[in-house]
Amino acid sequence: MSKVYKLAVTAADRFVPSKLRPLWEHEAGPKTIFFWAPAFKWGLVIAGLGDLNRPVETLSIPQSASLAATGLVWSRYSLVIIPKNYSLFAVNVFVAITNLYQIGRAFKHQQSLKNKQA
């Protein structure tokens, strides 16, 4: 751990209420990367939700497919590692769901274009 991070955690340690102490001290709590990686990954979910308003013609199927696959793989991984990381599981389930929905939108659009041509 970097010295700056250790100083920040030590400083924050004094202000954590006793009721939140179990979360703070948890193996996947805010003192570890196991907490911060999923926290920042919610940005992908927010971006995916923003893309729901995007015109279907501009969606990237390969990008959505890779994000959906990543979400599914990491969802599984988060439940087999020790300690189990439920926040990582939750964010990856949402990444997978939002991108599977986008793939569905794109597929439905392509099918409607094929039907118009036929």
Rank of each mutant, 00 (worst) to 15 (best):
G48K: 08
L49D: 04
H26E: 10
F35T: 09
T70V: 04
Q63L: 06
L49S: 03
K31V: 11
P55T: 01
K84V: 08
G104K: 10
A12L: 15
G48F: 07
A65E: 08
N92C: 03
S87L: 12
H109S: 04
G50N: 10
Q111L: 06
S18R: 15
G29A: 08
T70C: 10
G43S: 15
V9N: 02
L59A: 06
A118P: 06
A65P: 09
V16H: 12
R76M: 09
S2P: 01
S112V: 01
F94G: 07
P83H: 01
T70L: 12
I46R: 10
D51V: 08
A12C: 13
I46P: 00
E27K: 13
Q111M: 05
A37C: 11
A47D: 10
Y86Q: 06
T70S: 08
L88N: 05
K41S: 14
A96N: 04
T58E: 13
L44E: 08
I61V: 12
A39D: 07
L100V: 04
K108I: 01
G29V: 06
P22F: 04
I82L: 11
A8I: 11
P30M: 11
I97K: 01
T98R: 01
V16K: 15
T32Y: 05
H109Y: 10
K114R: 09
L72M: 11
A37M: 13
P38M: 09
A11H: 04
K31F: 13
S75C: 10
K19R: 15
A69L: 12
T58D: 11
A69W: 02
A11W: 02
N85Q: 02
W42P: 06
V9C: 02
T70I: 06
H109D: 00
F94W: 07
A68Y: 00
H26C: 03
G50R: 11
E27C: 12
V73I: 12
L72S: 09
T32K: 11
I61A: 09
E25S: 14
W42H: 07
V73C: 02
K108A: 03
V16W: 14
V56Q: 08
D51N: 15
T58N: 07
T98S: 11
K19N: 14
M1A: 13
L67I: 12
A37G: 03
G104L: 04
W36M: 12
I33E: 14
L100I: 05
T32D: 06
I97D: 00
N99M: 05
T70N: 08
W74F: 10
A90Y: 05
A28L: 07
Q110F: 06
P83Q: 00
G48Q: 04
V91D: 00
R54I: 07
N53L: 11
W36G: 03
